[in-house]
């Protein structure tokens, strides 16, 4: 088990390292950043001066080494716009993203688990068909469009909720609903298949035959035993939620890391992009790491492999 944990932990480092490397070279290959800050008719000397100031005139591998050396120490440079520490700006936005992601996750589980249980228990009935139908349609609805429709309904028509921004709990309602809806379809499917597995087991049939009440059978006997596969599947899926958060934040102007990353890409503020990629890769890799360990813990076959 320890071997497995160490191996997986090394992978976290490799993921973050490669993500930074790829994005660094993509940015450098895409063009000289100095041209973004100087007028197109700037004199050559000024461009050269700027390049020297920012270190862009050095060979690429020196720049890369320098960047990595500083990045390891948490220094991603200053924002090209606000001259503040790039990593600091990203970290400031992190709590808002966590807040949105965690609330949505809880809401999604509260909807998806009962739906999946019902769908599995009433297999091949109307309930199951509706449950499966909802997941199929749910997967076809882009989250950003759902967000727009919610803004239209609740902000424009009913004028009940704000269309964007952050700060108060009221601002959280629409983005949370949007991001939760994005996950409900997949979580329902996980629950349904995990429950179907358990419901086929002999002990369930025995319990049923010996007259255990339905509610007790589902809650105590079936759901309890399918909770571990559900939790692991959900944990492995959290990255998709994180990806959805980026888009949802952009739709609702939610002041999180996703919106910051999007705006920095728009402004070509590359130190922030790199710091943002670093944080997203790190969080995602850690989530995967924990999910894998959890999965290995409940499923010894994985450990041996």
């Amino acid at each position: 088990m320890l071997d497995f944990v160490i191996k997986r932990f090394l992978q976290v480092i490799v993921v973050v390292f490669l993500a930074l490397t790829v994005v660094f070279f993509l940015i450098r290959l895409a063009g000289d950043p100095t041209t973004l800050f100087l007028p197109p008719d700037a004199p050559r000397e000024q461009i050269e001066e700027y390049r020297e100031l920012l270190g862009y005139n050095r060979p690429l591998y020196v720049q890369y080494g320098d960047f990595m050396y500083n990045a390891i120490q948490g220094d991603f440079g200053e924002s090209l716009r606000s001259q503040e520490d790039a990593l600091g700006i990203v970290l400031d936005r992190l709590p808002a993203t966590f807040q949105l992601a965690i609330t949505s996750l809880i809401l999604a589980l509260f909807i998806a688990i009962p739906l999946g249980v019902l769908s599995a228990y009433k297999r091949n009935t109307v309930f199951d068909r509706i449950g499966v139908g909802l997941t199929v349609v749910g997967q076809a609805v882009p989250s950003f469009w759902l967000g727009l429709i919610l803004i239209f309904l609740f902000a424009a028509q009913l004028q009940l909720l704000p269309s964007g921004g952050g700060g108060t709990p009221v601002h959280m309602i629409l983005p949370t609903l949007t991001l939760a809806a994005y996950s409900v379809a997949r979580f329902t499917r996980f629950t349904r298949s995990a429950m179907l597995d358990v419901l086929q087991k002999d002990y369930i049939r025995t319990a049923k035959a010996s007259g255990v009440p339905t509610m007790r059978l589902i809650m105590r006997y079936a759901l309890r035993n399918s909770l571990i596969p559900i939790i692991t599947l959900v944990a492995l899926d959290l990255g998709v939620l994180l990806g959805g958060a980026v888009i949802t934040e952009a739709v609702f102007s939610w002041p999180g890391v996703g919106r910051l990353l999007w705006q920095s890409l728009m402004n070509r503020d590359f130190p922030i992009v790199l710091a943002g990629v670093f944080i997203i890769a790190l969080i995602y890799a850690i989530i995967n790491f924990v999910a894998d360990i959890l999965y290995a813990y409940v499923n010894p076959q994985i450990r041996v492999k």
């Binding site: 992978q11 993921v15 993500a19 994005v23 993509l26 940015i27 895409a30 990255g239 998709v240 994180l242 990806g243 959805g244 980026v246 888009i247 990353l261 999007w262 890409l265 728009m266 992009v273 990629v277 997203i280 890769a281 995602y284 890799a285 995967n288």
Partner: peptide, 14 residues
């Protein structure tokens, strides 16, 4: 182990 949509967004933006 990197979110698909974020990856595509970053690559396309760059």
């Amino acid at each position: 182990s990197f979110p698909f949509i974020v990856l595509v967004l970053v690559i396309n933006a760059i």
